[in-house]
């Protein structure tokens, strides 16, 4: 494969069968390896697409400053694209995200504004909104509400999966901004009306949820529950157990959130087996494990020890 620049090489990632973790020969699980993008995560797709669409409609012009609330990957992708395209970028990030993510952002030239750990990404969104009001000249692409986030997956990820796996019956991904699920979900449903679109969301320990007020929760503007057929909440223990299993049994080194997605995909697979159905289940490996090495979960002797090391951290 040959490309004219690193940016042009975003997407067209491998779809890999998991021969050992698939429950049977007729219920198969396929990993879409999004860590194979230029900065190592699925976020290269929406970041580049949001920037290019904003350039097309004139919201983003040379010399602009980009502002974005991000727990890491989107910021890293935006920072890389911003550097190559000559924009300044400021990321608002919860203070309890991993050291590697901060280093990567700094490496790509992003400026980081930390938001309080309490409230996690919700707080980062609020802080970014306040900054945007103080600096109306800054451009907030705002991944949680920008239709081009889902648009990147409608244009890229969805068609790639259908082309590689025309028999796809289920698509499973992390919820996050909901962009991946909305974009891929809409595309696949247009071509496979019976496809099931399943979300996996991280369930953190109490330290992360803190005293979140039930009346001030946050649902990304992109979210349309009509696109989904199911939604699972996956705790740290299951996520860590699965991400270690993916490494041990299939040789795939993925980030912690992928463990949560795999857990949901395996649950879906188990149901298909129980119902006597055939299934081709595609799930997203959002990033590799590199950025989470400092958590110690990969080399911990037991899953219990690994879970202990993850306490209080935003792992997705």
């Amino acid at each position: 494969m040959r490309f004219d620049s690193a940016l042009a090489s975003v997407g067209n990632t491998p779809l890999v069968l998991l021969p050992r973790l698939s429950p049977s020969e007729t219920v198969r699980i396929w990993a879409k390896l999004e860590d194979r993008n230029p900065t190592g995560s699925v976020k290269d797709r929406p970041a580049l697409y949001m920037i290019e669409q904003a350039e097309k409609d004139g919201r983003l012009t040379p010399g602009c400053t980009i502002l974005e609330p991000t727990s890491g990957n989107t910021g890293i992708s935006l920072a890389m694209a911003a550097r190559l395209k000559g924009y300044r970028i400021i990321c608002v990030m919860p203070e309890n995200t991993s050291a590697e993510r901060r280093q990567l952002l700094a490496m790509w030239g992003a400026e980081i504004i930390s938001s309080p750990a309490a409230g996690g990404s919700n707080t980062a969104v609020r802080v970014a909104r306040e900054l945007a009001e103080e600096h109306p000249e800054w451009v907030m692409l705002y991944q949680y509400g920008n239709p081009d986030n889902a648009g990147a997956h409608y244009a890229g990820t969805g068609p790639e999966i259908l082309a590689d796996l025309p028999s796809v019956t289920h698509f499973v991904a992390g919820l996050g901004t909901t962009g991946t699920l909305m974009g891929v979900g809409r595309y696949l449903r247009e071509h496979r009306p019976d496809v099931e679109i399943v979300a996996a969301e991280p369930r953190y320990d109490d330290l992360v949820y803190g005293l979140r007020n039930l009346d001030e929760g946050f649902v990304p503007e992109l979210y349309d529950d009509a696109v989904l057929t199911g939604r699972y909440s996956v705790g740290s223990e299951d996520a860590v157990r699965r991400v270690r299993q993916l490494l041990d049994e299939e040789g795939i080194f993925a980030g912690v959130s992928t463990g949560a997605v795999l857990h949901a995909a395996l649950g879906v697979g188990r149901r298909a087996v129980a119902a006597g159905e055939t299934a081709d289940i595609a799930f997203v490996v959002a990033d590799g494990g590199w950025k989470y090495l400092s958590t110690g979960i990969y080399e911990a002797a037991t899953t219990e020890e690994a879970v202990e090391r993850l306490q209080g951290q935003l792992w997705a």
């Binding site: 995560s41 699925v42 976020k43 609330p69 991000t70 727990s71 890491g72 990957n73 989107t74 996690g120 990404s121 919700n122 969104v125 991944q143 949680y144 992390g174 919820l175 996050g176 901004t177 969301e201 991280p202 369930r203 949820y209 979140r212 007020n213 039930l214 929760g217 946050f218 649902v219 990304p220 909440s233 980030g255 959130s257 959002a286 990033d287 935003l314 997705a316």
Partner: peptide
Amino acid sequence: LPAVAGGMG
């Protein structure tokens, strides 16, 4: 659980 943003954002 309270609804939260998050997940690889």
